[in-house]
């Protein structure tokens, strides 16, 4: 995206957030939008790794959980302020991802999928079994809400605004990153590692760095989730969550910043809309995903853009 278009897109997005934050007053809708925002962060984090650098991860729920449990443990067991826990949790997620990513990302394709799958399972087992710290299968309650000045940011209007401001900043940053020297190297990596290396890119290191960056964004989503909902349990950070994140990226569109927003919205809203099918809900859900993949294999963003261009060129 060129500088002008980026500015325009960011302004429009900021405007939409401002309007929505004032217009949406129904608590259910506010909550839904908050969840979409958190999922967008998850999808964006994974998209940087999957869409741009071409490396799959089936274990990102571990980093989501690390963000949530990290801040949960520090604030409830040790009485830290959330803002003190914030940098530590993000740095921890980045460091853990780098250390694990360096050897794991030597794998590729199916093998990398298996390796990261293992990571996700280990994470989930720790969240579930480390009773004294994580509360085990019944989860953690009483995680304090975030406060800015005297204002408590909780589920509702304030939490929704907080999440979307973070999303906006993450979008802006990732968009810049993709257009930079690093972004070019990432896209090259996704295409051919040998060719990227021949251009002077240290592929092993870059893969670990982007894995780490993606983990930080994911942990950030976990941090927000823990403090907004106030309650976390291992089932929110299981294998299915990792799969849901991959689905958001693929449905929204690989290597597309705004695709993360679409993917997260669809995957979050679809189950809500499909309640009318009651017993058949999950079947219809699966069917919708199949149809999207068959007819829009490059994801919703690319598919919709192509359709628009088709209409334009016909008229």
């Amino acid at each position: 995206m060129t500088g002008k278009r980026r500015l325009w897109a960011t302004t429009a997005f900021a405007g939409a957030i401002a309007v929505a934050s004032m217009a949406v007053s129904n608590a259910y809708h506010q909550q839904l939008l908050t969840v979409i925002g958190i999922h967008t962060l998850l999808a964006l984090g994974l998209n940087m790794l999957m869409g741009y650098a071409g490396q799959i991860s089936l274990g990102h729920a571990a980093f989501y959980g690390l963000g949530a449990y990290g801040t949960g443990i520090l604030t409830t067991h040790y009485g830290w302020s959330p803002w003190a826990a914030f940098p530590l949790v993000l740095v921890a997620a980045g460091a853990v991802a780098y250390v694990i990513g360096r050897p794991t990302l030597k794998l590729s394709g199916y093998y990398l999928a298996m390796g990261t799958l293992g990571l996700g399972i280990i994470g989930h087992v720790i969240f579930r079994e480390w009773d004294s710290m994580t509360g085990g299968a019944s989860g953690m309650v009483g995680i304090p809400p975030l406060q800015v000045g005297g204002t408590v940011l909780s589920l509702g209007r304030s939490g929704m605004i907080l999440v979307w401001v973070v999303v906006l900043m993450a979008f802006f940053f990732c968009d810049r990153l993709v257009d930079s020297r690093i972004g070019r190297a990432l896209r090259a990596l996704g295409d051919s590692q040998g060719a990227a290396a021949a251009c002077g890119v240290d592929t092993g290191r870059l893969k670990a760095v982007i894995f780490s960056f993606s983990a930080v964004l994911t942990a950030l989503a976990g941090f927000l989730y823990a403090h907004l909902v106030g309650f976390i349990s291992p089932s929110s950070f299981d294998f299915l969550m990792s799969i849901r994140m991959v689905t958001m990226v693929v449905i929204g569109g690989m290597a597309s910043i705004y695709g993360s927003l679409f993917g997260a919205s669809v995957i979050t809203l679809l189950p809500e809309w499909l309640h009318v099918f009651s017993d058949y809900e999950m079947m219809v859900y699966g069917l919708v995903l199949m149809l999207v993949m068959i007819f829009l294999p490059q994801g919703l963003t690319r598919g919709v853009l192509d359709a628009l261009e088709g209409v334009k060129s016909e008229s």
Binding site: R187, A188, A195, A196
Partner: peptide, 14 residues
């Protein structure tokens, strides 16, 4: 071994 989806100038800058 060029990078097909990237623009010519991005390939060169790489």
């Amino acid at each position: 071994w060029i990078f097909p989806p990237m623009s010519v100038v991005d390939n060169l800058r790489l």
